[in-house]
Design a protein around this nucleic acid. Structure first.
Lengths: 99, 99
DNA sequence: TAGTAATTTAGCTAATAAGCTAAATAGTGC
DNA sequence: GCACTATTTAGCTTATTAGCTAAATTACTA
């Protein structure tokens, strides 16, 4: 069970997540974005899946990976709360921002 | 030059950062919080320093490590922006910025 | 059912990480 | 300068990671 932060430690894996933010993509399509072999990419997918950051689904002879945003958000928000890191660019709370 | 995400991948290193959020602490005091040897902790400090997450300063026979919050914030905010993750609002916290 | 395309698994190598003990270094204070 | 304390460096072992090629598997499609 790879931890989320372990999964995020490799730049290829972070970029895979970014590629998935606008919708699912096949393993092959994802792999084509990176200068490593498909088996190597398969290992990266396995780690992301083990961390709960992506889900894989069989579809028409391919495997479509989709982002599991809630796992990522929970990990990042949880850590930021522990560290008491505030948001940088959202308006002051005393200006009555409407969510 | 360890990357911030590499540095964050180990739980001891994340907890060191948390211990430093309310002010600097000596290497020895930090090491006492963890069930590993001091040389091992020294290696963790070196990685955090190499990632720009902490600073070490000689003071009265000890080395005081302090958190470099801006590096951490930049990395997390940057990644969250790339991922289009809403950043949480953290309530006012007194981080000890006594004028 | 056989073929084909997509993906993973197996098996390997090389590099890095994390831990240890023992020794070296740096800085204080007498 | 010497002793003392704090911390790091050296040197080692073991485990993990990341990469590769080749082979196996899975799942469509004809």
């Amino acid at each position: 069970m790879t931890s989320v932060f372990d999964a995020l430690s490799h730049p290829i894996r972070r970029e895979v997540l970014e590629l998935l933010k606008d919708g699912g993509k096949s393993a092959g399509d994802l792999a084509d974005h990176f200068p490593v072999s498909k088996p190597t990419m398969s290992g990266h997918f396995a780690k992301l899946k083990s961390a709960g950051l992506i889900l894989g689904e069989n579809r028409a002879g391919s495997i479509i990976y989709t982002l599991n945003m809630s796992t990522l958000e929970e990990a990042l928000h949880g850590f930021m709360a522990r560290m008491e890191i505030a948001q940088p660019h959202v308006p002051d709370t005393d200006r009555g921002e409407t969510a």
